[in-house]
Simulated assay, not measured.
Amino acid sequence: MPSRTPHRFRRTAALLTAVAACVALAGCSSGEPSASSSGATSAQDKSHSKSTEPPRTDQQDQQDRQDQLGQQDQPAPTQVSIPSIGVKSTLMELGLNADGTVEVPPAEKGMTAGWYSGGSAPGAPGPAVLIGHNDTRFGRAVFHDLKNIRKGAEVLVRDGAGKTLRFTVTGKEAVSKQAFPTEKVYGPTKGSTLRLITCDGEFDAEGHTVDNLIVYGALD
């Protein structure tokens, strides 16, 4: 993506793409491997990443600078655990694919969650996004039981410096991929927040789930 693109737009567009990719890839196939489950993105998925950016303000530019400073000061996360549902996983770093879509953990590493490094780091201002599979062609995956998490549950994220950050779940929702609450998920936040994303819901005719499950958290 061109370096002249404003930071906030890059993060916004990339996170929206991550959502679209998660719908198509993160544990959404119940059948044989397909182009989608191996990392390709369909034209329909790509359409989710199309968005327009409103005119920027001085306040938004200042927030960008603050976000970048916070990102630089905060070590990358290395592990996530959710004691109430028995989740404990190292975190792989997820970037962008060659076509501009956000990477997701490969199907053969379904029990490993990933952190999208183009967004905020846990502990820095803004939403940190962790993506994990629900199921893959190899079986149940790391976020299979995410639907059972309750408000008030703790999510522990360890960073590369050995510090453990404690987030508290503030809510969750299952949403259709056709009506994803983009601003609610990736919009700027004053404090450090967390979003856990996986697939959810019924399967369509192609064997892909039609919904996303989103869990929201805030740093204690």
Rank of each mutant, 00 (worst) to 15 (best):
residue 49 S to D: 08
residue 98 A to G: 08
residue 111 M to N: 14
residue 85 I to T: 03
residue 70 G to I: 05
residue 49 S to P: 03
residue 123 G to I: 01
residue 86 G to F: 07
residue 45 D to S: 11
residue 126 G to T: 05
residue 104 V to S: 05
residue 35 A to Y: 12
residue 118 G to H: 13
residue 59 Q to L: 15
residue 95 G to D: 06
residue 73 D to W: 13
residue 56 R to N: 03
residue 107 A to G: 13
residue 74 Q to C: 09
residue 72 Q to K: 11
residue 89 S to P: 01
residue 120 S to W: 02
residue 42 S to N: 03
residue 65 R to Y: 12
residue 70 G to C: 06
residue 44 Q to F: 11
residue 98 A to T: 15
residue 102 V to A: 13
residue 53 E to H: 04
residue 71 Q to M: 11
residue 37 S to F: 05
residue 90 T to A: 10
residue 117 S to P: 04
residue 113 A to M: 08
residue 75 P to I: 13
residue 65 R to A: 14
residue 94 L to G: 05
residue 71 Q to P: 01
residue 116 Y to H: 15
residue 104 V to N: 01
residue 95 G to H: 09
residue 62 Q to S: 15
residue 105 P to M: 09
residue 68 Q to H: 08
residue 45 D to Q: 15
residue 62 Q to W: 12
residue 110 G to I: 14
residue 67 D to G: 02
residue 36 S to N: 06
residue 112 T to V: 15
residue 106 P to W: 06
residue 83 P to I: 13
residue 41 T to P: 00
residue 66 Q to A: 11
residue 110 G to W: 04
residue 99 D to P: 06
residue 77 P to L: 06
residue 125 P to S: 10
residue 36 S to G: 05
residue 34 S to R: 12
residue 73 D to R: 15
residue 58 D to H: 12
residue 66 Q to W: 04
residue 112 T to A: 03
residue 50 K to C: 04
residue 68 Q to I: 00
residue 120 S to L: 03
residue 35 A to D: 13
residue 117 S to V: 05
residue 36 S to P: 03
residue 72 Q to Y: 11
residue 53 E to W: 04
residue 104 V to R: 00
residue 61 D to E: 13
residue 62 Q to V: 15
residue 59 Q to K: 14
residue 128 A to W: 02
residue 56 R to K: 12
residue 49 S to M: 07
residue 80 V to W: 06
residue 74 Q to L: 08
residue 72 Q to N: 10
residue 43 A to M: 13
residue 97 N to Y: 12
residue 67 D to H: 12
residue 39 G to Y: 02
residue 70 G to S: 13
residue 84 S to N: 04
residue 48 H to M: 09
residue 39 G to F: 01
residue 95 G to N: 13
residue 60 Q to T: 00
residue 54 P to K: 02
residue 34 S to T: 15
residue 71 Q to G: 01
residue 83 P to G: 02
residue 50 K to H: 06
residue 110 G to K: 03
residue 105 P to E: 09
residue 77 P to E: 13
residue 100 G to V: 10
residue 39 G to D: 11
residue 45 D to K: 02
residue 115 W to Q: 00
residue 128 A to S: 15
residue 57 T to P: 02
residue 75 P to K: 07
residue 38 S to I: 07
residue 95 G to Y: 01
residue 86 G to I: 05
residue 42 S to V: 00
residue 76 A to R: 08
residue 88 K to V: 05
residue 80 V to H: 01
residue 43 A to I: 11
residue 112 T to I: 15
residue 57 T to V: 07
residue 129 V to P: 11
residue 54 P to N: 04
residue 88 K to S: 14
residue 71 Q to T: 07
residue 59 Q to Y: 10
residue 106 P to E: 13
